[in-house]
């Protein structure tokens, strides 16, 4: 399967988490990476270009930090402009039909904070409902997110583990080895990779 990573980070230069993750993506052959804040610093997303790229891929990944329980503004701008009526959804909007969509998210809070009992009261996937339903409206399969938790407390070693897990995940998707049916049932894709539980360790 052909993988497209749409990466959105307004302060990429200050993010050690995404620096590692992006390096991992770049090392993988066959994955298309689009750094949206670099391509569209003026927010003038070109629908034609983006739609052409989308058609060439099977799995669309939004990689971004978790801002106000959602993505950075450019992600929303991208969706507003690219997912057009009559193209992505609506009567004749079938261009994205059957593709997969998922998010790779970094959060400051740890896993415990994103739980029904935690500080934020919901798991990350629940906050992603608008994305999930958007994917569905565009006839896509929505997969649960791959989440890097507690970014402020992660050691270099733990970060490397996340990057490795991300690589494994992408490789599995590319090779068609990911059990998509099973994956759709999960809260996070993290458990499919070799990332150890680190919530308690970092506390």
């Amino acid at each position: 399967m052909k993988v497209l990573v749409l990466f959105a980070h307004p302060a990429f230069e200050r993010s050690r988490v995404h620096a590692k993750l992006i390096r991992a993506v770049k090392q993988l052959p066959g994955v298309t990476l689009r750094d949206l804040y670099e391509i569209y610093p003026d927010f003038d997303v070109h629908p034609d270009t983006e739609q052409k790229v989308l058609k060439e891929h099977d799995v669309i990944i939004f990689q971004h930090p978790f801002y106000w329980y959602s993505g950075p503004a450019l992600i929303k701008q991208w969706m507003d402009l690219v997912l057009e009526h009559g193209w992505a959804y609506g009567k004749d909007g079938n261009e994205l039909k059957g593709k997969y969509m998922l998010q790779v998210i970094s959060t400051g809070g740890n896993e415990g904070a994103y739980s029904p009992e935690g500080h934020h009261g919901h798991v990350v996937k629940q906050f992603m409902l608008p994305f999930e339903q958007s994917a569905r409206l565009c006839h896509m399969h929505y997969l649960p997110p791959f989440v890097v938790h507690g970014t402020n407390q992660l050691s270099e070693q733990q970060l490397d583990q996340y990057a490795q897990g991300y690589t494994q995940l992408l490789q599995a998707i590319q090779a068609g080895q990911l059990d998509l049916q099973r994956a759709q049932q999960l809260q996070e894709l993290n458990s499919l990779t070799g990332i150890p539980q680190i919530t308690s360790a970092s506390k």
């Binding site: 507003d80 057009e84 009559g86």
Partner: peptide, 15 residues
């Protein structure tokens, strides 16, 4: 028309 996402009402009608 192109920026359909910014034009809710139109989009709703056409849905």
């Amino acid at each position: 028309i192109r920026d359909a996402g910014w034009d809710r009402e139109n989009a709703e009608e056409r849905n």
